[in-house]
Design a protein around this nucleic acid. Sequence first.
DNA 1: CCAAAAGTGTTGCGTATACACCCATGG
DNA 2: CCATGGGTGTATACGCAACACTTTTGG
Lengths: 202, 202
Amino acid sequence: MAPQLSIKLVVFSIIDDKLRVFFKDKNLPVGFPQKDKSLDNSALSILQKYIKTSILDDYVEQLYTISSAGGGKAGIAVVYYILMPGYSINRENKSNWIDCDNIGKNMSEYDVISYAVQRLRWKVEYTNVVYSLLLDEFTLSQLQKVYEAILGRELDKRNFRKKILSLGLLKSTGKKKKGEVARPATVFSFKSRKPEFVKVFS
Amino acid sequence: MAPQLSIKLVVFSIIDDKLRVFFKDKNLPVGFPQKDKSLDNSALSILQKYIKTSILDDYVEQLYTISSAGGGKAGIAVVYYILMPGYSINRENKSNWIDCDNIGKNMSEYDVISYAVQRLRWKVEYTNVVYSLLLDEFTLSQLQKVYEAILGRELDKRNFRKKILSLGLLKSTGKKKKGEVARPATVFSFKSRKPEFVKVFS
DNA sequence: CCAAAAGTGTTGCGTATACACCCATGG
DNA sequence: CCATGGGTGTATACGCAACACTTTTGG
């Protein structure tokens, strides 16, 4: 009897300036590999079953494969983590998104999520994949808040702008974000939305 | 029909100051998960089938799981990489250990090995797991050569010693390594041989 | 005494950090 | 005119890289 192989997803997004993970009925999304698809594509189609989104620009990466020698039959799960922009999510489903800071050690899947957060932190410090948590256009303050939510600490505005702009990853769209009771902010976008290695923070 | 799940190993060691990978009959070691064992332990027992070693202090980490939609039946392989000290290896089997610099793009498993080398580089830069490539006791020059073999570049002796000693990972054994026609070197060992995060190199 | 590897300090440079005020807009 | 968030510059500290000579040993 071959062990049952499943796919499990840790889906991250930034909503209301918090790093959140998607749960469905208190569980992470789970599914099975499909014969005619690669593992990565199977993960994507499981994602689509759980979360309706208009945008298909999410970042998908394997975390690891775990043999959960749990209760009944031996099971093996390939765990993925996925990044998607918060603004592309239906507001009605917001209660499914749990703030990572509120996931206690006694919650199921605590270990998996902690590890995923750790990997995510590393990823945003050493690559440009934050783009996958933002829509095409954004202000520097929005970008800074994304970093702060992931890293779990505040950043100095001036140093942040200096650093980010010096990396040359962004381009100004020329637009200004009006409509707020404040000075309008310059709107930026990423020059490239493909993963690259870049040292962003120490 | 559930897909067949296999385990594949990329075993690294430093022999003659070169980073090398173990091959058996031009293939990487392969095996299958065992029902009564975790994946990690299955990987370890496959390792023992291929390589007889007196020491069981190797570093084992999952690389990733790949669905090789290759020729016949769909197969899924969990790939591990393993680090073991060069001096614990039988000299007779040296021809099974291929210098990583000599693995061409057309060789089978080139992609897997490249990725494993990349992960290994990261790992030695940001953790203390080099210990797994060395025996308990070693000189600073030996340690430096291990780093040089993995990183693929030469390091300045003075800067290396300053950096490594400042990290506080090592302790002097008080011994001197005599027997060479040169000034005797201080013998060091790691304070801890458990994985920790430490920024070693930039 | 010679060859071989061990051991040892200083300086310059670039990057990271800390820090406070003025600006443009909508209400 | 006031509240809100956008935008800007400088001084200091720290870590990294470059670099050459003396010491100890075995043969």
